[in-house]
Design a binder for these strands. Sequence first.
DNA 1: GCACATCACTTGACACTGTTAAGTGAATAT
DNA 2: ATATTCACTTAACAGTGTCAAGTGATGTGC
Lengths: 217, 217
Amino acid sequence: MTTSAIRTASLARRERQKAETRQAILDAARELFVSDGVEATTMRAIAAKIGYTPTAIYHHFRDKDALIVELCVADFSSLGQAMYKIGRIEDPVERLRRMGLAYTDFALDNPSQYRFMFMTPLKHPMLDANGNVVKSPDEDAYGFLLQTVSEGIEKGVYRPELSDAPELAQMVWGGIHGIISLWFTHCDDPHIVFRDPRETVRTMCDAMIRGSLRNSA
Amino acid sequence: MTTSAIRTASLARRERQKAETRQAILDAARELFVSDGVEATTMRAIAAKIGYTPTAIYHHFRDKDALIVELCVADFSSLGQAMYKIGRIEDPVERLRRMGLAYTDFALDNPSQYRFMFMTPLKHPMLDANGNVVKSPDEDAYGFLLQTVSEGIEKGVYRPELSDAPELAQMVWGGIHGIISLWFTHCDDPHIVFRDPRETVRTMCDAMIRGSLRNSA
DNA sequence: GCACATCACTTGACACTGTTAAGTGAATAT
DNA sequence: ATATTCACTTAACAGTGTCAAGTGATGTGC
């Protein structure tokens, strides 16, 4: 083994080790975020879970927010994948409906993630190493939605006054998001008997789509 | 003036004074909550604004949460009033539509209040002096909605499969809430061009109602 | 009229948070 | 063999919500 080969090998090991503790931080943070909530999870708790000092985290992430954003990015791509699977459905209306249900499943299966993806404002927009605004990963999911709605508009399946794709997309997204987030924040409210959110979403999708189609059969 | 009269008079004055500083705390808290957000406003800031020591607040409110809840209660009744004005409309469907728009106006006119009314889980349910769960003030607004939806169902204006009043109510409430809350948390997102939430809500109400009516004319 | 009690409010602290400047020590480079 | 790098630690800071122990003016009872 040449000296240069040793150099690169050991360098690679060092980088791998650093990446490993970085990942350990991410894993610990995720677990605590899910079980205790993002706000309630402290840097000290994350560090203790993996046997490091709190300040060690700051060698891998600028601050707590950066840690959150990093996990958020992974979740967005995971949501994007779930949406992608549905992209093959031919009929844009049925695809829209199925996207809504898949979105709901994702949210209810990953409540903690959903909370900080869509129910808390991201303070700093995600920046890459050069400080440029990075192409948002949620654009994938939102882009899918927008395209699906647009296809329907182009095909002329929706009522003529519903010709604005962003508005239609935000109507569908918002509607579903509302049922989900209301469930998350108020399902323990003793004064309101909440229906199963999946059922309510289904009902909403049906009603909204039926009310949006040109020939409202 | 008899001694007893003096006693009650001075006692009344003391109580009035206490109530005044209590109100001063509430006013200061409200103002700061609105301008800086609930999380970001500190007890110290509230106290400083009215020239008291932070701990003085604890003689009037058990903790910060109790302060929030108190303001919340006032807001719920204010929302309830806004809903009540619409209660006179005869047609339950048109009334539902108008309630949705009024709800949206309330939310967009009082974003900070709306945030902690519907976008953050209330930790302890509101308790009265005896520790009993107090009848939720939002039951007023939600009750209105429920009744309006029920009237429509009884009149037979909705499709037969939409016979569950809570589900229908939560569909409408959730839908509107979603557009509003998404706007609040993501309107600064540089990747999504948001439409005016009032417009989107209007479109949604029309679509949802049209898709829910029996004779979908 | 004077000692006593009440109680709105203050003082000073505690435990906790996220975060940082300075230091340590083992692995690498020369 | 010496110097350097750098992942990580130590010790601290400023800020948070909150509380136990006072303080002092006001009101009460003899």
